[in-house]
Simulated assay, not measured.
Amino acid sequence: MRALTVDAGVPGSLSLRELPDPDPREGPVLVRTLSVGLCGTDEDIVRAAMGAAPPGSAHLVIGHENLGRVLSSADDALRQGDLVVGFVRRPDPLPCSACAAGEWDMCRNGRYTSRGITRLHGFARDRWRCSAGGLLRLDGRLARSGVLVEPASVVAKAWEQIERISSRAHCDHGRVLITGAGPVGLFAALMATQRGFETHVYDVVPAGTKPELVEALGATYHRTPVADSRLAADILVECTGSPPVIAALLGLGGPATITCLLGMSPGEAVMPVDVAALNHRLVRLNGVVFGTVNANRRHYESAADALLAADPAWLDRLVTRRVPIEEYARAFHREAGDVKVVLEVDEQACQLLS
C-alpha cells in the first residue's frame, strides 16, 4: 500500500513509498483512508523539527487529521462502510491517572503516543488498523467535511475549558476576541458564534477567503494589529503562536477575562515582559491565562456536532485546496490564499463526494 513517510530525524525526507498492509495485531478494525488534512505540525515534522518514528522503524507515516471508511470490522461496534475519524493521541501504556480516565489529552507522564507525530504511524496511507475505541463514527452528512473534525476537536476542548473556568464565578461573558484566521482561529470563531457571542477576529490578511469566512459567520474581521485594539473583550483566544501577538493579548481584557492560548510558538523568541505589571493585572482583575492542546473522545464528539450545525458551504470554502496524495509536494508548497489544504488519499472515493 502507499504511505507518505519521513525518515526519522532527516529534514526534507518526505516521500511516498510502498509499505506492507497493516498488521492485524494493530486492531480488529480495518479502515480505508479517504483524506488527510495538513497543518503546521506536519510541516515541522517534514523539516525534522519534531516527530518520532515508532520503535524499531526508521520512518514515520505522517498525517494526523483524517477521515476514512471502515473496510472490515471484527468488532460489533462498527460496520463496513461506516464513516470514521481516528483519534490522534493514544493513552500511555501504564496508564497514568488521566489516561486511565479517558482524558489522554491530559497525559501526566508523557508516555502517550500520537498518530503521525509521536511513536505511532499516522493516517497518510491507503489503509490502517486500530481498535474500535480508537475511532469515532461520524454522521454520513460529514462525508465531505469530516476531515476537519480532528482540528476542530482541539478548539472544542478549548471551549470546554473556557466554559469550565467561567463557572468559577458569575461571569456574563459576551464578547470574544480571536487572533488568527487560520483553520484554528476560524473554528474558534465558528464555535463562538454558535454560542451566541459577539465575535471579533484579528488577522494580517487584508482581503480574500479569510475575512470572507469570518464575516459569513456574522463575526467582525479586523485588519489592524491586535495591539491597537480598543475592544474590551471577555474571552481572548490566541491562535497564531506569534510572540508579539501573545504579548499584546496579555495586556488586554478586563475583570475576570479568560485568555486561552491555542497557537504553538515556532522556534525561540526573547521579548521584554513587565512581569510585575502582568501579575498585578491578572491578580487585581481575577484574570486567567491557560494553554491547551490535543483532544479526547468527548471533544471529537463536540467538534462533529459543531460541524454538523455549520453551513456545509462554509466548511467547503474553508478547504481551499484538495490535492491527490501522489502530488504531495504540491500540497506542502504554500500558495496565496491557502487556508486548509487536504490530501485526497482515495481520490476516486473523494470525487464521488463532491
Score class of each variant (00 low, 15 high):
A269D: 11
A269I: 06
A269W: 04
V270K: 11
V270T: 15
V270R: 13
V270G: 08
V270L: 07
M271P: 09
M271S: 11
M271G: 06
P272N: 02
P272W: 05
P272V: 03
V273L: 15
V273G: 04
D274P: 13
V275W: 15
V275F: 15
V275D: 12
V275H: 14
V275I: 14
A276D: 12
A276Q: 11
A276P: 02
A276L: 14
A277R: 13
A277Q: 14
A277C: 10
L278V: 05
L278M: 14
L278C: 05
L278E: 00
L278S: 02
L278W: 00
N279S: 13
N279G: 15
H280L: 12
H280N: 11
H280F: 11
R281C: 02
L282G: 00
V283C: 03
R284L: 09
R284F: 07
L285I: 00
L285R: 00
L285K: 01
L285F: 02
L285G: 01
N286M: 08
G287V: 05
G287M: 07
G287D: 06
G287E: 02
G287H: 04
G287R: 05
V288I: 09
V289S: 08
F290C: 15
F290S: 15
F290I: 13
G291E: 13
G291W: 06
G291K: 08
T292N: 10
T292R: 08
T292C: 13
T292K: 07
V293F: 14
V293I: 15
V293Q: 14
N294Q: 06
N294P: 11
A295C: 11
A295K: 02
A295E: 03
A295M: 08
A295Q: 06
N296Q: 05
N296D: 08
N296K: 08
R297G: 06
R297E: 08
R297Q: 09
R297F: 02
R297K: 08
R298N: 06
R298I: 05
R298S: 07
H299V: 10
H299M: 09
H299A: 09
H299F: 07
H299I: 08
H299D: 14
Y300Q: 03
Y300T: 04
Y300A: 05
E301C: 04
E301Y: 03
E301K: 04
E301Q: 10
S302E: 15
A303K: 00
A303P: 03
A304Q: 01
D305E: 15
D305I: 04
A306E: 00
L307V: 05
L307W: 01
